[in-house]
Amino acid sequence: MDYQWYPGHMTRARRQMQEDVRLVDLVIELTDARAPLSGRNPDIDSLAAGKSRILVLNKSDLADPEQNKAWTAFFRKDGLVACEVNARSGNGIRQIRPMIAEACREKIERDRSRGIMNRPLRAMIAGIPNVGKSTFINSFAGKASAKTGNKPGVTRGRQWISVERTLQLLDTPGILWPRFDDRQVGIRLAEIGCIRDEILDAQELACELISWMRAAYPQVLSERYGISPDGTAFEVLGRIAEARRCLKAGGEPDCGKAAALLLDEFRSGRLGRMTLEKAPD
């Protein structure tokens, strides 16, 4: 299956971001900590050229703790201001404010030299669909200001949110890029829920996930489902169906239902904290 998803509204959203980025001092990019590199839209680099940047690895509670540290160090070594955050619980949110002040230090000092005091900083919150941008804004602002949801495509239009008098945040729709050159990027984004399930083959995606888990976290399948991980990925999916009583009439394994269950348990963290791609050494 070709894992591509670029609906028409994303083209419009990209154009809007191109216009809006001129209004901000800073771009805060969110990526999913489970796929930190695959989850970064390369278009944001060109859209945000010349702007101060912060990279937030969100949903860090679902990712491998060691990989969280490794990826944060990797991005910092690459010259980015980076941190890990769990926007849903608020863990890590407090470090964002001083990061913003540091990233915009030259701008603040320039304003002061011109006699401009306490002008609000403006930051754009950017990232791919379902990476948690609105949840991040609500956690950071301390109030439910932006629409949230656990499916991609919840935010569709421009939303400005004031955080006290010194900071304004611009929530933007999640956008992907027109085509993934690497098929594995599309698979990872589908596995973490950044591509609409309605256009995916859940059984094929679940088999991709099973194959990856057997190599990266070999103990997970046997510990969670009490099954042998041997054989083809589809055979393993059938065993998961039997173990979880996902059965059709007559007792035949319902692999479609088992695939949906496996993907849901992975995305929610019930299979444990896992990261789909390892940071370079």
Rank of each mutant, 00 (worst) to 15 (best):
L47Q: 11
D20N: 13
N150R: 12
I161S: 11
L30P: 01
I125V: 05
A206R: 12
E204G: 12
L121Y: 06
R270G: 04
S38W: 08
A259S: 10
W71K: 01
R267A: 03
I187G: 03
R183G: 11
P7M: 06
A103C: 06
I108R: 14
G142I: 00
A202H: 15
S268G: 15
E252N: 12
C104A: 03
I161P: 06
D20P: 00
P7E: 04
N130Q: 06
L276E: 01
P65W: 06
P36L: 04
A48S: 15
L189W: 14
D254W: 03
A190P: 14
L80H: 15
D201W: 10
A279H: 03
E164D: 15
L271A: 05
W160K: 07
G142L: 02
D281M: 07
L247G: 02
N58V: 09
C255V: 14
S60C: 10
R15I: 11
A126V: 13
R165E: 15
K77Y: 06
K51G: 01
D264F: 07
R22A: 13
L47A: 06
S113K: 12
P229W: 07
K107L: 09
S211Q: 07
D43S: 10
K69G: 09
R188M: 11
V154Q: 02
V154I: 02
A141S: 05
R97N: 08
P173H: 01
Q67V: 05
D111R: 15
A82I: 04
G79T: 05
E66I: 06
A103D: 05
M17H: 03
T172F: 02
E109D: 13
S60A: 14
K107P: 00
G90M: 04
R165P: 04
T172M: 03
E84M: 10
R34N: 02
T135C: 03
A123C: 00
S134I: 06
M117R: 14
R244G: 12
W160C: 01
G115P: 02
S139H: 10
S211F: 10
N118A: 14
A259V: 05
A243F: 00
K143S: 14
I137H: 04
K107W: 03
N68G: 02
A190L: 14
L23E: 14
L170W: 00
R110G: 13
G153F: 09
A35N: 00
G256R: 13
A259I: 11
E265A: 09
Q159D: 00
R22K: 15
A70H: 03
N150T: 15
A202M: 12
N130V: 08
D78G: 09
M117S: 08
E277C: 01
F74W: 12
W71I: 07
L55V: 14
N68V: 11
G90A: 13
A101E: 14
D281E: 13
I108Y: 00
M10E: 13
D111C: 07
A87N: 04
A82N: 01
A279N: 09
R97W: 13
L47S: 05
Q184R: 15
I161D: 09
V56D: 07
Q159N: 09
T148S: 10
S145M: 12
